[in-house]
């Protein structure tokens, strides 16, 4: 089996994988980073979003081999100890209920704020098209992201 090397949450990992192994499978099964979730099989739901070299990526749509040499950040590696401002805002504004879509939603929001520090409500809603939440009706997720944007640009 071919070997793959990448930096995950700041730590270099090398493993032999079947070529068809998806990045999300590699993270969940090889590295036991189960915070990244799988909610669909058509790249629609966004529960598996991680950052690859700083950009949000659906890790169900990328082979582990394709991330060779890349830096991957998962929800587990977003903050050390304390909560990242986006995580804190989700808690403060009740931007999560069952928690299943949450890791992908948070990672997607982090990427948005890195590209657009002060998004409008409609920009946030448009950006989140690729992330499904069945619990919150998105209302409090949008509020949380607006609040995080304010806090991060303050």
């Amino acid at each position: 089996m071919p070997s793959v090397t990448m930096k995950v949450n700041g730590k270099e990992v090398t493993a032999e994988v079947e070529p068809r192994t998806l990045l999300v499978e590699f993270l969940r099964q090889n590295l036991a980073l189960t915070g990244t979730h799988v909610g669909c099989d058509t790249s629609q739901c966004g529960a598996c979003v991680v950052l690859v070299d700083g950009n949000s990526v659906k890790s169900c749509t990328m082979l582990a081999m394709q991330a060779d040499g890349d830096e991957v950040t998962t929800i587990e590696g977003l903050a050390n100890g304390d909560l990242h401002p986006v995580q804190a805002a989700f808690k403060e504004h009740h931007g999560l209920q069952c928690g299943f879509c949450t890791p992908g939603m948070v990672m997607s929001a982090v990427d948005l704020l890195s590209k657009n520090a002060k998004p409008s409500e409609s920009e946030i809603r448009h950006w989140l098209e690729g992330n499904f939440c069945r619990c919150t009706g998105y209302h409090n997720i949008v509020k949380a992201i607006q609040s995080a944007a304010e806090r991060m640009s303050a």
């Binding site: 189960t34 915070g35 998962t74 929800i75 587990e76 909560l83 999560l96 928690g99």
Partner: peptide, 19 residues
């Protein structure tokens, strides 16, 4: 009150069956 549950869900430490 903000939720007790949130920390584990926000940090990827929820424990779902497939985990």
């Amino acid at each position: 009150v903000t939720r007790k549950e949130d920390k584990r869900f926000l940090t990827g430490r929820g424990r779902y069956t497939d985990d």
